[in-house]
Design a binder for these strands. Structure first.
Lengths: 230, 230
DNA sequence: TGTAATCAGTTTACGTCATTTACTAAAGTT
DNA sequence: AACTTTAGTAAATGACGTAAACTGATTACA
């Protein structure tokens, strides 16, 4: 009787998530699939919640990896930072679409209540994911800085928060650039989640062309130019 | 023994949703709260899903009403369309924050699978909600049209979808304006859901000042001017 | 007025869920 | 050989959605 591993358990959970949707991910189903009984899983995770959070972490890592690969591919054909940013954003959308269950799990409403940022594995992976985009953004800023809001022009309350965030991540960017990053991320997240969650379906069947417009706008926001036909 | 009404049942579900979170909304809990047993609820709704969808519809209606009221209040102090739009967007954010459980229910990930837009009560209310914003947008366009993309400049695939959507809602706006509306709604939804779902918490504690910047950008998108200190 | 139908529930039951507790068999350690 | 640890099972608890059968009251009609 070979002992199971946390890795196998998480993979099984992932498979059930993908094949049968989020609500099918029960301890019983996972255990059944592995030829075990549900309580055995408590040897590896303290609760279902704990297991799920670890799966969330894995998903974040996979997403980070996929986007990293897309950036890598874009790098091969020249050192164009615009191409890399576009590739990263497009890959984010593509991944989200082909992994809707996972997307809902990591970017949907955090049901368990007010527990965001409690420093667990999933949060750490989430931050690493943010880091993928931030690294790209940082590279862009170094290579070709674009006009941003001056610190004095930023609302004092917001400025203080941005300063703290900048300290936490240890970046030497102007506050306006940090702000631009957060605003871009918000736009990207909004466009993708709106689409993946089906909330734009009342008007559009295929929002891909509109996403291209979002990309163009994001590019413009950071001083780049992107014309929606690649 | 007074008979219960669907209205009472939905209200009870709402109360439990607000007081104890989304996962506490069980048929048993609702029935318990009403001094009944769970199977009795099947006299009024065909399933839990059916009940929830009806609650979702009510929530949409309430949100529509609240935003309508906010627009009404903004109308009292002059006929400024900018003030009304800002008030509507601000009320949307305020409501979403003070009704996080409800927000998650109507704007979160549609767990049951691929069933969006199947024409039930909830969908109808969702469209009515969209109509509140659209009416405002339409008023804006009539009063002071702003430059929009010409039809020939819109991706053909997107153009076709926009034409169909325009026919469905029976509006006589240029396609570019419809597109602008959808893009504004996407931005607004993105900013609010990002914040309410706690996904901006890794950087900011209070995203209110950043939302003001979003408002300024939205205003600019439709040819208006909004300066973030009211 | 008597009887049948309908309404608004209850009771019971089934299978599922997460989780706890107590137990067991094997493997490793001293 | 005696022990501890590991990795599981079995059984139980209390919650869940849902289906079926049943019950008592109210209403409709002859």
């Amino acid at each position: 009787m070979r002992a199971a591993t946390t890795e196998e358990i998480k993979q099984t959970a992932r498979r059930i998530l993908v094949e049968q949707g989020p609500e099918a991910v029960s301890l019983r189903a996972i255990a059944r699939e592995m030829g075990m009984t549900a309580p055995a899983l408590y040897r590896y995770f303290t609760s279902r919640e704990d297991l799920i959070r670890n799966v969330v972490g894995d998903i974040f890592n996979e997403l980070s990896g996929d986007i990293g690969l897309a950036i890598g591919r874009a790098s091969q054909s020249g050192e164009d930072i615009t191409a890399k940013l576009i590739a990263a954003c497009r890959e984010f959308r593509r991944w989200s679409f082909s992994h809707q269950g996972e997307f809902g799990l990591i970017f949907g409403s955090p049901l368990p209540g007010v527990d965001d940022g409690r420093g667990d594995f999933a949060d750490e992976c989430g931050r690493r994911f943010a880091g993928v985009f931030f690294a790209l953004f940082y590279e862009l800023w170094r290579r070709s800085p674009f006009p941003v809001r001056a610190p004095e022009e930023i609302d004092p309350g917001l400025r203080a928060q941005l300063e703290r965030f900048r300290t936490v991540i240890g970046a030497d960017l102007p506050l306006g650039a940090i702000l631009a990053f957060l605003r871009c991320w918000t736009k990207l997240y909004g466009a993708v989640s709106m689409e993946v969650f089906g909330h734009i379906g009342f008007a559009l069947d295929d929002a891909a062309p509109m996403f291209e417009l979002t990309l163009a706008e994001l590019a413009e926001d950071v001083g780049l130019v992107y014309v929606p036909g690649s």
